[in-house]
């Protein structure tokens, strides 16, 4: 069963530097939200913060409301009871995210033993079914395999089986296909789609592949410099982007229907500044074609119905 998750003014502090700088959004029950942006824009830290999985030394502030409780202030034992059961996460790199010295079966069965209080044998049988659901071939054999004996795609399927084992209400998938061959990416995404659909799970999908968001999400959050600079439905944001950063991201996609040799890809000038090196005011202004003196002040988030953006000089719709 799906439940909504509300993030209010989430901040992640790396020492004295804010890497995520006041992010607010809502994941509606059963909705699918894409979180996009370049590497270094704070997507993964946002995801880890709302799962309570930030690395040692990083602190989160703000509120993450789920089922009437603030996950950021929840005692560790209560958070542990939610994680893996109601809240689950799929990571980017399935090789390092799986324990190299434990059989796949035991790893997939673990959340079932923990949250469903199943005995080992029942949990293993259930885990075999979970592997079938993610369409791993020869599930019985793969149950006994170690992670290094699986292909990249199979490993990520096993990760997904593990995350979905307890039919979570909210699933956070952090670039689940980035580490995989292009040929297996589509299959993994289709699988995620189906499982989330079947369980009615609320999905937060982090990616820098805009096509993935367009095909499997209904809402998009565009993140840059630790802030959400634009958000809305997939139709609004992708068809009529208003923030110059969103526009630049979309322009950087090579068109499939044009002759490539004649056309230079429009890359975003410059690169993402390091942590704490973003300019004051609008974080994008040093790379933005529309920037002027006014951008030294951080633009407020303007809400236009369902569509919101933070920019002093938005791109005209439709251009």
């Amino acid at each position: 069963m799906a439940e909504s998750l509300l993030v209010e003014d989430l901040r992640v502090l790396v020492g004295a530097v804010e890497a995520v700088r006041g992010v607010s959004f809502e994941l509606g029950a059963g909705s699918r939200t894409g979180l996009i942006g370049e590497s270094g824009s704070g997507k993964t830290l946002t995801a880890l913060a709302l799962m309570g999985l930030l690395p040692d030394g990083l602190r989160a502030a703000g509120r993450v409301l789920y089922g009437g409780r603030d996950l950021l202030t929840l005692p560790d034992d209560e958070l542990c009871a939610l994680r893996g059961d109601r809240l689950a996460m799929v990571f980017q790199e399935p090789m390092s995210a799986l324990n190299p010295v434990m059989r796949i079966g035991d790893q997939v069965a673990e959340p079932l033993m923990l949250h469903r209080r199943l005995g080992r044998r029942v949990a293993l049988a259930e885990a075999t079914r979970a592997l079938m659901r993610v369409r791993i071939r020869d599930p019985e054999e793969k149950m006994r395999a170690y992670p290094h004996q699986l292909s990249g795609g199979q490993r990520q399927r096993a990760m997904i089986a593990m995350a979905m084992a307890c039919a979570p209400a909210v699933l956070v998938a952090d670039e689940p296909t980035t580490a995989l061959d292009v040929t297996v990416q589509a299959g993994i995404l289709r699988l995620l789609d189906e499982l989330v659909e079947a369980e009615g799970t609320t999905l937060l999908l982090i990616t820098h592949d805009l096509a993935v968001v367009a095909s499997s999400c209904d809402r998009v959050l565009v993140m840059y410099g630790g802030k959400i600079v634009e958000s809305g439905t997939v139709g609004q944001v992708f068809d009529r982007p208003r923030h110059p950063y969103t526009r630049a991201l979309l322009d950087a996609i090579p068109p499939v229907d044009e002759d490539l040799p004649d056309r230079h890809l429009r890359a975003i000038p410059g690169s993402v500044p390091g942590l704490g090196r973003f300019p004051p005011g609008c974080p994008f202004r040093n790379r933005c074609p529309n920037a002027d003196g006014k951008c030294a002040e951080m633009p407020p988030l303007a809400v236009l119905g369902d569509h919101s953006l933070a920019c002093w000089h938005p791109v005209e719709a439709g251009i």
């Binding site: 799962m51 999985l53 690395p55 560790d76 034992d77 542990c80 009871a81 939610l82 994680r83 893996g84 059961d85 689950a88 996460m89 990571f91 790199e93 390092s96 995210a97 799986l98 324990n99 190299p100 434990m102 673990e110 959340p111 923990l114 949250h115 990760m159 593990m162 995350a163």
Partner: peptide, 22 residues
């Protein structure tokens, strides 16, 4: 600091359980 310990935590294991089992 390994990723699989983070995975174990994401499954709902406590810090100590994750260390012990993984």
């Amino acid at each position: 600091r390994e990723d699989f310990i983070r995975t174990a935590r994401a499954k709902g294991l406590t810090r100590w359980q994750a260390l012990q089992r993984h």
